[in-house]
Computed example of a mutant assay.
Amino acid sequence: MAVMTHTQNRPSSVDYRDLTAAQQDRLTQILELADDTSDSGEYNSLMLGVAALAGIHIERGGEVLRCSCTCVCPAVFENTRDARTVEASLFNLPIRQCPLCADRHPAEDLD
């Protein structure tokens, strides 16, 4: 008899506005720390922290971003190939549209 374990299905994106004010503040703080760090291990740890705070599952080495679309989308999302780079970044965090915005009103892709 095989035993199956159940995994939690976590969304790949959440609405920033659905987070509490404290969660929003903390998420913003952690993203700022990730953007400024020069240590890849610290960056990965901060990304895992952002993902846990937002309730998004990512693999080690994954990224969680806020949508940078000009429509002011409230998405906090796992960075995937379906996202679109909308602006060059001088820091760690890419400036990308979430996959939904990239599908609905794509900006010029800079990748």
Rank of each mutant, 00 (worst) to 15 (best):
M1F: 06
A2W: 11
A2G: 08
A2E: 07
A2P: 08
V3Q: 11
V3H: 11
M4W: 07
H6G: 13
H6E: 12
H6P: 04
Q8I: 14
N9I: 10
R10P: 02
P11K: 09
S12I: 14
V14L: 09
D15H: 12
D15T: 08
Y16V: 07
Y16S: 12
Y16Q: 14
R17T: 14
R17V: 07
D18S: 11
D18Y: 07
L19A: 08
L19E: 10
A21T: 08
A22E: 08
Q23H: 14
Q23V: 12
Q23W: 05
Q24I: 10
R26T: 11
R26G: 02
R26V: 04
T28C: 07
Q29H: 13
Q29D: 07
L31G: 11
E32Q: 14
E32N: 10
A34P: 09
D36K: 13
T37V: 06
T37W: 03
T37A: 03
S38K: 12
S40T: 10
Y43W: 12
Y43P: 06
Y43C: 03
S45K: 07
S45V: 02
S45A: 15
L46H: 05
L46C: 03
M47N: 02
M47W: 01
M47A: 03
L48V: 06
G49K: 13
G49D: 13
V50G: 03
A54W: 06
A54L: 07
G55K: 02
I56T: 00
I56D: 00
H57F: 03
E59Q: 10
R60E: 05
E63Q: 09
V64K: 02
L65V: 08
L65I: 14
R66K: 15
R66A: 09
R66W: 02
R66I: 06
C67T: 04
C69H: 13
C73E: 03
A75C: 06
F77D: 02
E78F: 02
N79C: 13
A83I: 00
R84W: 00
V86R: 08
V86F: 04
E87S: 15
A88Y: 13
A88E: 05
S89A: 14
L90H: 09
L90D: 13
F91T: 12
N92T: 00
L93E: 04
Q97A: 01
L100Y: 03
C101Y: 00
A102P: 00
D103L: 15
R104V: 09
H105M: 03
H105N: 05
A107Q: 03
E108Y: 04
D109H: 09
L110N: 04
L110C: 01
